[in-house]
Design a binder for these strands. Structure first.
Lengths: 163, 163
DNA sequence: TTAGCATCATTGACACGTCAACCGGTAGGT
DNA sequence: ACCTACCGGTTGACGTGTCAATGATGCTAA
């Protein structure tokens, strides 16, 4: 197996033209899918996917409240991103923040009634949009394959963490 | 085939728990893949993927120049987004804008020398990152499947255009 | 002729994300 | 006691994206 017969996949530096075309289709289409879901959620409920992730986590939490850094870890956000987002959500009355009784320096994030209502109203249309735009677009085999592809990509991202 | 044996996929309103788990893995992982590529490109070349898309299109254009709305159509952006982005790229000296000689009201976008150099320096590391993070993460069969999944999702997005 | 009307592009307001700096408080080592 | 280092959280600056409104200019029909 030499350079002239590139059967070993590590022997190449760059993607082939076919691989590159698939890469572009894949990354652009998944990005477009994400923004379509975003805009469906927005028009159905005036929430962003970020709002939805926060409200989902708080809804499932005991007491419908979480410490800020727990919440950040739970939804996989940086603390700074969460802090900015909570500021915007607090202005819209979806959540409240108060000092944490148990942990010094801790901030407790509370779901408000308005936030719970907004989340309840958003859930059904959001799940329906996921079905229409993702589940119904693919065969059952493709859905399984999508899961495997996501797992493989995630593994690779973790292996090359920090690069 | 009844509600109790849901073989017809249109008979359901909402995704199953398995479908939902795959959806989340898929959309979050592809988003993370996109941001990793973005940050690799940024540290390798001080360009964003938006910059790269603009510079790629201009590099391949005759005379390394395009009309603004042609460029927007070519890379699939809204004109307003492109206008904002070109403003930032112009401040950094990557492109220039001038009135178009042939089309009234048209703006011609020109690649500058600095822009061409930045693009040339970014290409190799960017393609290498695509290989490392996407091509090398998947088996050849998975790459084909990814292409088919992207095509199916794109078709669905087009069918439901505007929703 | 001129009153609309579409088209090309820009602008402003705002939401969102990252990065780096910062603040206040606790804990450890000397 | 004091210095330092970390930890939880916030803030500011800036790049990026969308939407709606605004010029600026040509086309068309009363």
């Amino acid at each position: 197996m030499t350079e002239a017969t590139p059967g070993r996949r590590g022997g190449r530096q760059l993607p082939t033209a076919d691989e590159l075309r698939i890469w572009r289709d894949f990354i652009e289409t998944t990005a477009a899918l994400g923004s379509r879901l975003e805009s469906r959620l927005q028009s159905d409920s005036s929430l962003s996917t970020g709002d939805y992730a926060v409200l989902l986590a708080l809804s499932e939490a005991e007491g419908q409240a979480m410490r800020s850094s727990e919440l950040a870890a739970h939804i996989g956000w940086e603390r700074s991103r969460l802090s900015h987002h909570l500021g915007r959500m607090e202005r819209r009355g979806l959540i409240r923040r108060q000092e944490c009784a148990t942990v010094p320096r801790g901030a407790e994030v509370l779901l408000t009634t308005a936030g719970a209502e907004a989340f309840a109203g958003a859930t059904f249309p959001h799940l329906r949009a996921i079905r229409e735009l993702f589940v119904d677009a693919l065969t059952p085999e493709q859905i399984v394959a999508a899961g495997e592809i996501a797992a493989a990509l995630r593994t690779r991202l973790d292996v090359l963490r920090g690069q």
